[in-house]
């Protein structure tokens, strides 16, 4: 296991270097002068020159990159142009709603996907199975911003059961907090639930055809015990893989969900920074999101090795 961790960490280093180079290059991809793009035309030349100097844009590009990397290694991700605060502070203020949303969405998706996937596979080719697979198709094809608006229309505007936007901290006010996060979590969780349902169903069908399942049935075990004791655990490996593969979609989905429901999370921060043309903030947040994404993928890989010991010895 230790070797697997080291191997995966070592493979991450060159990718990380290229990721930083890519994020650095973002600013320089802007057609024309990034300073003009960031600052309104009315701003005087002196302010522009000072920002240019602050961002180091007056120096040769390799020097800029070296200086940027040195600051990065000290943990300095730069400052937002809009509010002048360090990127780290901007992000840390916004991280809690995002994490709460992600956890709740994950919970929603598992609560939906496991019963639907298991029943679909166990009752293959029945009406229940067809309903389950139709649900999965719906979830995969439904754009989350459209789903968000449908949920708002139904539960917020028509039935008036849940708030349609805004955020209440569930730690301070548990009930109102959960109410404010419920529609966003369902929006984000449904697509994930659809993918997990589909994967779980097909991997369970595969496991159900194995010899050990026939043996277990021949021993006289009830169908539920066969599924719980023999099928489910073996069917989980592809589910973990898919969960890992879906992380990127989940983060992208969170950007849209936070935007639609006006949740003050990191995803909304990205959109705000993009439209304010606050490039240092865009660079910093994107880099942090990429780091988080790489780290989560690493964890999924290790989790994979833990669930299926065969993988460690390859």
């Amino acid at each position: 296991m230790g070797r697997l961790v080291l191997h995966r960490l070592a493979a991450t280093v060159p990718v990380l270097l290229l990721v930083t180079a890519g994020v650095f290059a973002l600013l320089h991809l802007t057609p024309g002068d990034p300073i003009d793009a960031m600052m309104a035309e009315s701003v005087d030349a002196e302010a522009k020159a000072s920002l240019r100097k602050e961002l180091g844009l007056d120096r040769p590009i390799h020097e800029q990159y070296a200086a940027w990397m040195r600051r990065l290694l000290r943990g300095d991700l730069g400052r937002s142009i809009r509010n002048g605060e360090p990127v780290i502070e901007n992000v840390s203020r916004r991280i809690r709603p995002s994490l709460e949303l992600a956890l709740l969405a994950m919970a929603v998706s598992l609560l939906i996907a496991f019963p639907v996937g298991i029943v679909s596979a166990a009752r293959r080719n029945t009406a229940v199975d067809r309903a389950g697979t139709s649900f999965a198709l719906f979830g995969i094809c439904m754009p989350n911003f459209l789903l968000a608006l449908l949920l708002i229309f139904l539960f917020g505007v028509t039935l008036r059961w849940l708030p349609i936007s805004g955020y209440t901290d569930p730690v301070e006010e548990p009930l109102n907090g959960l109410r404010s996060l419920l529609l966003p979590a369902v929006t984000l969780g449904l697509a994930l639930a659809a993918v997990i349902t589909r994967t779980l169903r097909s991997s369970m069908l595969e496991a159900l055809g194995e010899d050990y399942v026939r043996t277990a049935r021949a021993k006289g075990l009830s169908e539920w015990r066969v599924i719980r004791g023999h099928v489910l655990k073996n069917a989980l490996i592809p589910v973990v893989t898919v969960l890992g593969l879906q992380l990127g979609t989940l983060i992208g989905g969170a950007v849209i969900t936070e935007y639609v429901f006006a949740l003050p999370g990191v995803g909304r921060l990205v959109v705000e920074a993009v439209f304010a043309r606050d490039y240092p903030l865009v660079q910093g947040v994107i880099l942090l999101i990429a780091l988080g994404f790489i780290l989560s993928n690493l964890l999924v890989d290790l989790l994979y090795g833990w669930i299926d010991p065969r993988i460690r010895y390859r």
Binding site: T30, T249, I251, G252, V255, I294
Partner: peptide
């Protein structure tokens, strides 16, 4: 291939958003 891995290190929509933003 490492460059491709680097592109895959960004959540797709977030990367598209950032690129779309700088490209206009």
């Amino acid at each position: 291939m490492r460059a491709m891995d680097a592109v895959l290190s960004f959540p797709p929509l977030v990367l598209a958003l950032a690129l779309g933003a700088v490209l206009g």
